[in-house]
């Protein structure tokens, strides 16, 4: 009896905590559906009618669709690159035990500890010299180069795949690259999905790096649009809240659909680290 009562109290407590925790999101969303004057009558009130003008303004504001498209392209390029490059490196470094592989393993931990601004200016110079300024591929290449988290995930996961699989394929005359594509990649699929979803979220949300590399409005991303919108619309919180919702919506949908990969990815990352 006491135990059930305790249980009920705990459930109530958790649900109240959850509602409070998500309340800020609720506030942003409901206010984005209100005309400006209604907003400050009461921020807490539910919209009187379905008012979509804020979204229309935000969406039709110069180049929002363009930036949405850029973000999608950038996210795809980065995720594809990260998956290919780090799974190859993670696989081999996990298989070969030598001083060199130990050294490289240590070397790849550096991005966890070094803040981006330590090398951000020389990096911009380098990108300028390589004529990659204002290109999405430039941003993608930089993101891929520091994708150590993905490397460690693959490195850890390959350990759970028996070496005998590689060896028997080798005896059957299978080349190294075919072993990777035909045997390792199919087995890495679950962890690849997790890495892909996590990097999609991180790339989509990244701000400082695209902000530095992409000056041309034609090439910029949604996060930059959100940042600049504040200067453009001043304190027009009606349009701003709508933009905040629009910029986040794709990742919210992605998370809802693929949440099991997000969760298992974070858990695997923590356990292998």
């Amino acid at each position: 009896m006491v135990k059930t009562a305790g249980r009920v109290i705990m459930y109530v407590f958790l649900i109240v905590a959850l509602i409070l925790y998500l309340f800020p999101i609720y506030l942003i969303v409901i206010n984005s559906f209100k005309p400006f004057k209604d907003m400050f009558e009461s921020c807490l009130a539910f919209p009187k009618s379905l008012y979509l003008d804020n979204y229309i303004t935000a969406f039709s504001s110069s180049g929002f669709i363009r930036r949405l498209f850029n973000n999608i392209v950038l996210t795809f390029m980065t995720v594809a690159g990260v998956l290919l490059v780090t799974s190859m490196a993670g696989y081999k470094l996990s298989r070969v035990k030598s001083k060199l592989s130990k050294f490289l393993y240590l070397l790849y931990t550096v991005p966890f500890l070094i803040p981006f601004y330590t090398y951000m200016i020389p990096l911009v110079q380098l990108i300028t010299k390589m004529k990659l300024m204002n290109t999405l591929s430039g941003v993608a290449l930089i993101s891929i180069s520091s994708s150590s988290f993905a490397f460690f995930m693959f490195h850890g996961f390959v350990k759970t795949i028996p070496v005998e699989l590689d060896e028997s394929a080798r005896i059957d005359g299978c080349g190294e690259f075919r072993i990777y594509t035909r045997i390792i990649v199919p087995l890495l699929k679950p962890i690849m999905s997790s890495v892909a979803v996590l990097y999609a979220i991180w790339t989509w949300n990244d701000f400082l790096l695209p902000f530095l590399i992409l000056n041309n409005p034609e090439k910029q991303t949604v996060t930059i649009a959100v940042y600049q919108m504040f200067g453009k619309f001043g304190s027009d919180w009606d349009v701003i809240t709508a933009t905040l919702v629009l910029a986040s919506l794709p990742m919210v949908i992605l998370y809802i659909v693929l949440q099991k990969y997000v969760i298992s990815g974070i858990v695997a990352g923590a356990m292998k680290g």
């Binding site: 490059v85 290449l141 930089i142």
Partner: peptide, 26 residues
């Protein structure tokens, strides 16, 4: 060794160009 180098090359080359090199320069 050669297959190790081949497999780590894409990641390591990017890592050296876009991270290590600017870091040392910084």
């Amino acid at each position: 060794l050669s297959s190790l180098l081949l497999f780590i090359a894409p990641f390591t080359v990017l890592y050296i160009i876009f991270l290590l090199f600017p870091l040392v320069q910084g």
